[in-house]
Design a protein around this nucleic acid. Structure first.
Lengths: 242, 242
DNA sequence: CGCGTCCTTGAGCTTGGTCAAGGTCTGTGG
DNA sequence: CCACAGACCTTGACCAAGCTCAAGGACGCG
C-alpha cells in the first residue's frame, strides 16, 4: 500500500529515496480510533503530532457557550495538528468521523524533518494549502447562503476524496451526520435538514443511506460558484522548486 | 529603524547575523500605496510576494454575487501572500486600509530563502500562526453573535497592534470603516452600526473619530471569551497585566 | 423487538438583512 | 469664512433566513 503522506507531499515536491524512507519509517506504528472518539482533545499539552493514515477526522472547537465549530476535515495523508511541532499548543480537538488509523509522531521528529529541505518545503506547502482552504471556508460560511454553502462544501469533498481514492466520479460515502454538517456550516441541524431537502428537490444532489451522489457535477459547481484551484490537487500545478 | 519582518520572525527563531542581513537586503526598495488602493488584485498572476513594511492592509475576495469577505488583516512585518511563492496563484485581492509602504519580493527569492533553515522554519512558523488566526476567525464568525464577534476582533487587533507599537494600553486608531467591519464579520454595515452602538452603550468600547478605546480590557475580553494564545505574540500575555 | 441515534417536520420567533432617507464630517474652492 | 460635495455614519420601518422548541418517524443493532 502506498503511504498517503508521501503521495500528498510528492504533489508539492519531488522527494529523494531517502526522504521517502524517512517518511515511511514514521508510519510504522499506528493506532486505531473508533468513529466519534476524540483523537486528541483541546486543553491537552501534547508532545505528538497526529497524522491520519486511514479514515476521516475533523478538527473542531467547543466554545464556552457550548457551540461547536468544525474548522477542518482531515483525510488520509493529512496532518491533524502540524502546528503543535512549532507552536506547542492544542486549543482544538481532533475527532474521528469514521474509524481512523492514526500515527503519533513526536514533535521533535517533525522538527528534525524540517532539516531535510525537500520535506520542509513540502510541509510548508501543505500548511499553505490548508491555509488556503481555511480562507475559502471563511468566505463560504460568511458570504454564501445555506444552499450554496453546502453545495460548495460537497464539491470540495468530492475532489478531495477523489484524490485519496475515497470517491468515484460523482459520489462518495458521507462521513457526516446532519449535526456535523451544522457545525461545519455554522447552521443548526434543523436548517441543514431543510436545506438538504431543497438541494434534493432541485436535483442537485441525491443523498440516501449516507451516500452522496451528484448527478451533474458541473451543474452543482456552477450553482455554488465553485473554483477548485484553492485545493491544489495536482492536475493544475504549482511552480516546481529547483 | 528596526525591520518589522525581522522583529516578527525572531519571535519564532533566533536568526543569524547573516540571516538578518539577507532579510534587510530584501527591504531596501519599497513603494508607497495610498489608502483604499489595491496592492495586488485577484486574477493577477504575480511573480512577487508582498510584504507590509508600514501601514495596514487586508486580504479580501469579492464573490460573483458582489459580496466581499475580508479574510486577513495585515500589519507591518506581515507577508500579504507568501503562498504565491509555493502555490503560484492569486485568488484574492490585497487592499491598503491606510497608506502603506510595501516591498515586492520575487517569488524565486522567497524560495531561495527557504534554503536557509532558520528563515525557512520562521516562515513556516508564521504560516502556522496565520492559519491559527484563520481558524479563530472561522469560529468567531460562525459561532458568536454580532456583539461578541466584534468584541473578539477588537481584542485581537489591540494585541496585534500593540506588538507593532501601533496601539497603547487600551486604544488604537481604527483603520476600518464600518463597511470594512461588515465585510470582516459577514454582517451588513447597518448591523455593524447598530452593534457598535450596543457595545458603546454597554461601556465596552468608546469609539470616536476613528479612535477605539477599550475602557476595561479584561472586561471586554471576558465578554467575548477571548483567549490570546492563538496569536503567539510572545511574553506579554495575560488579560490583566501588560 | 425495543432502544438509541439520527432524521424529519411543523409553528412561531429572533437576529440580522433590505431599503431608504437624512445627518455629520472633512476637504476644497470661491 | 462660507458653500458644497463626497464619503461615511445613523436611524427607522419592514422583511426573511435561519433558529428554537417540540413532537414524531426511520432505521440499524444488540
Amino acid at each position: 500500500m502506498s503511504n498517503p503522506l508521501i503521495r500528498k507531499l510528492e504533489a508539492a515536491e519531488a522527494l529523494t529515496v531517502e526522504d521517502r524512507a524517512v517518511l515511511n519509517a514514521l508510519c510504522t506504528a499506528s493506532r486505531q480510533v473508533e468513529a466519534k472518539r476524540d483523537i486528541i482533545a483541546q486543553g491537552d499539552t501534547p508532545s505528538d503530532v497526529h497524522l491520519v493514515l486511514d479514515g476521516i477526522a475533523c478538527r473542531y472547537k467547543i466554545l464556552a457557550n457550548g457551540a461547536r465549530q468544525i474548522v477542518a476535515v482531515l483525510l488520509p495523508g493529512d496532518f491533524c495538528d502540524l502546528h503543535i511541532a512549532l507552536l506547542g499548543e492544542m486549543d482544538h480537538t481532533i475527532g474521528a468521523l469514521t474509524p481512523c488509523r492514526i500515527v503519533d509522531i513526536p514533535a521533535a521528529t517533525i522538527r528534525d524533518l524540517s532539516h531535510r529541505p525537500r520535506i520542509a518545503r513540502a510541509l510548508w506547502w501543505a500548511t499553505l494549502v490548508d491555509e488556503g482552504t481555511l480562507r475559502e471556508w471563511l468566505i463560504n460560511n460568511g458570504r454564501r447562503e445555506a444552499p450554496q454553502r453546502m453545495a460548495h462544501f460537497f464539491c470540495e469533498m468530492l475532489l478531495r476524496l477523489q484524490a485519496v481514492s475515497l470517491a468515484d466520479d460523482k459520489s462518495y460515502d458521507m462521513p457526516f451526520r446532519q449535526y456535523d454538517l451544522a457545525d461545519l456550516f455554522a447552521l443548526t441541524s434543523v436548517h441543514v435538514n431543510r436545506t438538504l431537502r431543497q438541494l434534493r428537490e432541485a436535483d442537485l444532489i441525491v443523498l440516501e443511506r449516507r451516500q452522496l451522489t451528484i448527478p451533474d457535477v458541473a451543474r452543482l459547481m456552477a450553482f455554488c460558484d465553485f473554483d477548485p484551484a484553492y485545493l491544489h490537487l495536482g492536475s493544475q500545478q504549482a511552480p516546481t522548486v529547483g
